[in-house]
Design a protein around this nucleic acid. Structure first.
Length: 290
DNA sequence: CTTCTTGTTACTGA
DNA sequence: ATCAGTAACAAGAA
């Protein structure tokens, strides 16, 4: 379920692995996973290379040397980007992956797109549920996509004043605002719950009713929870892996997500509630979060 | 068989 | 205009 920390982990991995490597082959296994025509997609990538990798919220932005951008949209629950060196092809079948390799070019039955680099290494875009997609965009199209999003939760331009401004006139629940990518980009269901727990705030609270002290706590928790999760290479709850096929380590540090049957890690009571809020399953400690 | 889960968009109704 | 709720999308787990 890649949210900001998982996408950032992937971004940093890819930065080390694919920048400057010439793309010599493109295989589109599943056309629905590409937003462009196949010919446009292939033409933009073939014989070019990635020169920079940026991120906004959950969106990965790969800048190509030909002024195009490869956008990787919301990997959602099941998207993976897995990088394999040519010498890893044989070892991978019994190490990181339990799916069978069906051909040297297709790593598993959920592989949607494969990029082949000049040195025979490959980048696999795997996505069980086919909700994520890749898109070639011009600079203008890329900017348009980014403008639709709110400020990235970890960018320097997201400061306490920005948070106050976007919360003060909103008659919506805290949870629904945290999840709204048009306001703050990058937070999904797991981290929204973890942030509310860390800030000791009830996710059902109305945003415009939070006082300055509570907003400050919320702001600090957004930054600290996301940064801590990045330090642990993200959370694996179901299918998320990094670019080596390894799971994230933050799952064991979760305090409320998925822990509705456990004791609260703060007060020790069996007080973690599981409710539906803003259309999403929400966990919170009714004792610690007010 | 049904129900639930992920993130986003589109829609409806208050 | 604002907000909440729900369906749709795909596929799999329980």
């Amino acid at each position: 379920m890649p949210e900001l920390p998982e996408v950032e982990t992937i971004r940093k991995d890819l930065e080390k692995k694919i920048i400057g490597k010439k793309i010599v082959g493109i295989k589109i296994v599943q056309k629905k996973s590409i937003k462009n025509s196949s010919s446009k997609f292939i033409k933009a990538l073939r014989n070019n290379y990635v020169k920079n990798i940026a991120r906004k919220g959950k969106l990965l932005i790969l800048e190509l040397n030909n002024n195009n951008y490869l956008l990787i949209h919301h990997l959602r629950m099941t998207g993976q980007l897995v990088y394999v060196k040519s010498s890893d092809i044989h070892s991978i079948k019994y190490s990181a992956f339990n799916q069978l390799i069906k051909s040297p070019f297709i790593i598993n039955s959920h592989t949607r797109v494969i990029l082949l680099f000049e040195n025979k290494s490959k980048l696999y875009f795997n996505d069980i549920r086919r909700f994520g997609y890749l898109q070639i965009a011009s600079e203008k199209e890329k900017d348009k996509t980014m403008e639709k999003m709110g400020v990235d939760a970890l960018s320097e331009s997201f400061n306490l004043e920005v948070l106050k401004k976007s919360f003060k006139n909103k008659n919506r629940t805290l949870k629904s605002l945290l999840l709204d990518q048009k306001i703050i980009a990058g937070i999904g269901n797991i981290y929204a719950d973890e942030i509310c727990f860390d800030a000791k705030l009830d996710p059902k609270r109305k945003a415009n009713e939070l006082d300055d002290n509570e907003l400050k706590r919320l702001y600090n928790s957004i930054k600290s929870v996301l940064k801590l999760a990045i330090n642990h290479r993200g959370t694996t709850f179901s299918d998320y892996t990094d670019t080596s096929g390894k799971k994230g380590n933050f799952a064991k540090l979760l305090k409320v997500y998925g822990r509705e049957k456990e004791n609260c890690k703060n007060c020790g009571r069996k007080s973690i509630q599981k409710i539906k809020l803003a259309g999403r399953t929400t966990r919170f400690c009714e004792n610690c979060q007010r």
